[in-house]
Design a protein around this nucleic acid. Structure first.
Length: 297
DNA sequence: GAGCCGGATCTTATGTCTAG
DNA sequence: CTAGACATAAGATCCGGCTC
């Protein structure tokens, strides 16, 4: 995996010319462009405050105009300002609901931020949303171009194109560039998935609620993970440390494998096929006795 | 003190390699 | 070709520091 070594936000997110695209890639780019244009222009000024919009994508926008890069940038910046003012003005993303309903507040259903204590359905929706946020981030940052795995189910409707909004990993998460990318991804997923009646809705359960903050939380977690990878690749000291850690990990694993092989010699229970994933693979934990070694006779 | 951030660590899914 | 071994990426979680 590789990241762009330089980030030039001043040049605008869409400015870089599309380099040597094949006709297929170019077609994808055009498709993606229209797709994002629709999503970008469809929501009313405050989409989260509309409980159930009739449609996520305005059919009237099917023939998208082609704005300039500057216009797109302005739209994005306006979007961010809108989100910021929205956040300042409301403590909750669903503040658009009639206030009378808040007289007897129920326990908040927006509990997807933390994975603990969630029901099975909530966990499924949470996982699905994380995948979608990640997918959008990949497409927005161009990371998808370097990642052929693309196993996410919704990748098909967001084809990979050249980078448009790369993360500024050298900066913090609150850097305007990063905030812009995260907000954009959150907005895209929210627009597609917040309305169970929308055609774009594809979550496993319609009755599970979530907020834009949940999505932002997911995006930030993903950013941190990617930033860690980026640092490990760009910082020689970290790269060296990582290599040493991995080397130790492999040594430890081989030692454990040797012990396990001896211990489970003739014992089918302790070295069954599930060992393929090797739950005992704990790179950083030395001295942890594998469960297989303590099994009863 | 609550909330956020970043780093470190743990866990898991998935990709790649290789011996049979 | 296939099963198993191994490598890697990345999500989840914990923890300490910082800010308000």
């Amino acid at each position: 995996m590789s990241f762009p070594s330089q980030f030039t936000p001043a040049s605008g997110p869409n400015d870089p010319p599309i380099p040597q695209l094949t006709p297929q890639q170019y077609a994808f780019a055009i498709q993606q462009y229209h797709y994002q244009q629709q999503l970008q222009m469809a929501p009313p000024p405050q989409p989260p405050q509309l409980p159930f919009p009739a449609s996520v994508i305005d059919p009237a926008l099917d023939s998208p105009q082609v704005p300039t890069t500057d216009q797109r940038l302005e739209l994005l910046e306006g979007e961010i300002e809108q989100l910021k003012s929205q956040k300042r003005g409301t403590s909750s993303p669903d503040a658009g609901l009639p206030k009378r309903r808040r007289k007897n507040p129920k326990p908040s259903p927006h509990i997807l931020k933390k994975a603990t204590g969630l029901s099975t359905k909530q966990m499924e929706v949470r996982t699905s949303l994380m995948k979608k946020v990640k997918s959008e981030l990949k497409n927005l940052t161009g990371r998808a171009n370097n990642d052929d795995s693309a196993s996410d189910s919704d990748d098909s409707d967001a084809p990979n194109i050249s980078p448009t909004l790369p993360f500024a990993f050298a900066a913090n998460i609150d850097d305007p560039v990063n905030v812009k990318v995260i907000d954009r991804a959150v907005h895209l997923v929210w627009t597609e998935q917040h309305d169970p009646r929308a055609e774009t809705f594809s979550l496993p359960h319609r009755d599970i609620k979530f907020t834009r903050e949940d999505l932002a939380k997911f995006a930030k977690t993903i950013f941190r993970g990617w930033k860690r990878t980026w640092k490990a690749e760009t910082d020689p000291a970290l790269a060296k440390k990582k290599a040493e850690t991995e080397s130790k990990s492999r040594q430890e694993m081989r030692r454990k494998e040797g012990r396990t092989a001896r211990a489970c010699d003739g014992s089918a229970m302790s070295c069954d096929a599930s060992g393929k994933k090797r739950m005992g693979m704990k790179p950083y934990v030395a001295g942890v006795v594998p469960v297989a070694l303590s099994l009863p006779p």
